[in-house]
Each structure stands twice: as C-alpha cells, then as structure tokens.
Amino acid sequence: MHNWKHVTTSLWSRSAGRVGLLGVMGLTVLALTSLVWSPYPPEAVAGASLMPPGLLHPLGTNGLGQDIFSQVLCGCRVSLLVALTVSIGSSSCGFFIGAAAGYYPRRLGVFLMRLVDVLMAIPRLPMIILLAVFLRPHLLNVTAVLIFLSWPGVARTIRSQVLALREQDSIRFVRFCGGGFTYVLHRHLIRELFPLLLAKSAMAASYAIVAEAGLSFLGLGDPTLKSWGTMIRGALDYPGLLWMPAWTWWLVPPAMMVSLAVFFCTLLGYGLDEALRRQEGE
C-alpha cells in the first residue's frame, strides 16, 4: 500500500515535481482570478487596435482592440477547465474499464481490450477534427471528444496493473472470502492505483491542453470562447501582422502560456511517476 505522505514528499523533493506542482497551482490561481476579475471583458473592444503594452493594457491590444491580458486570463480558464475535465473524465473512464478488464480477464477483458486496440489505432488528430466538426463546435463537445479518445491509454495501463494485483495474496484472500469486484475495486484497487492514476491524469491534462489549443488554432474549437489557440490563430490570420511589431504582444503571450501550461502538467506527471517508481523501488 502506498504511503501518501511519502509520495508527496518524494514529489516535492524532486525539482521537476516541485516546478510542475507550483506551476499548475499558479495557473489555477490565474484561472480562478479570471472568474472574479479581469481588467476588461475578454470580448469587449477596450481600446484602439494594436496598442503596444502599457499602463492601460498590460499586454497591449489585438487587431480588434481587445485587451490581450484579459484574453490570456480567459484562455487560462478555458484551458484548465478542459484539462481538468478531460483528465478526470478519461482517468475515471480508463480506470473503471481497465480495472474491469483486468479483473475479468477472460470474456469481458478480451472484448474491452479489443475495443481499446481499435480506438488506439484510429488516427487521433484527424478523428478529433472530424468529431469536433460533427458535434458542432462547443467546449463540452470538444471535452467529450478528448475524453473519448484518451481513455483507452489509461485503461491499458490500469488493466496490466490490475492483472498483477489480483494475483497478490491479500487480494486473492479477499476474493476467496467472497469480496466481489466492486468491493475489491473500492477497498483495494483504487487505493493501490490512485497515485498511478494521478500521474496518468496529469499526462492526460497536458494532452488535453495541446489538443484544445490545436483545435482552436484550426478554428474548430468553441467559437464563443477566447482560448489561447483562438488567439494564436487570430494573430496569424491578421493581414501583415508578422511584419509589424505587434506580433510580440499578440502572438507570443498565448504561445508562451500554452507551452507553459503543458510544461507544468507534464512535469507534474513525470514527477508523480518518478516519485511512485522510487517508492516501489524501496
């Protein structure tokens, strides 16, 4: 059984984990801030177009005269929301399906793993694009598509872990005493696999951020929300922008923010993974 305190201290002791944790916390604070306060509404025309950064607009304005700082804040909210939902959704889906497949390795397991194989062999990005268009652009749909396409990976990992766990003496004993799947699941499997699941969901979160930004960049995301991908696309679509100084405050901030958000989530994932492995090693 994992020692929680051990995992957290181990995560904190590694610089990767620490940076990731702090970064994700920082972004969360930003996103929460944007819920209650942002200098301007992100959609509002708040000034002249393409104003350089200054007192009124800390990051300047875009071609429409909207405040970039407010949009970056709003984008943070959108990205984190998608990241959180997708990571929770895909890891819980993946966990239950993977656990079921591992616990009943014969018929159900084989069937579920075939399903996983099929889903994993479908070209991902083309599929995301196709589904995003098919479902009409809405944040909820984007999230659903991302969950749909990212649970199989989690399920595969969980299954192999459960396959091993179910042969452990303690669990064999529980099963011998008549503990069913649900009992074993919530008394043993969740506790055993939770840190692993956490690492997996951090990875899923970083994937979700990239995918959402990519979709918005293609113009297939939710058109009513200002996300980082939409901002990047808007900047690149603006005629002649790349030849003006304005790209530095219009294109760079969302680009940096996407990269940082993915970076922090990935680091957190690596950190958790490592902390876990070290603990197992001991």
């Binding site: 959609e43 009409r136 652009p137 113009g219 058109p223 009513t224």
Partner: peptide
C-alpha cells in the same frame, strides 16, 4: 449582448 461566432454557425 454581442456574441461572436464563426461564419457557419
């Protein structure tokens, strides 16, 4: 309340 959406929507 102005609301922006893409041409197709």
């Amino acid at each position: 309340q102005p609301k922006a959406m893409d041409v197709k929507s």
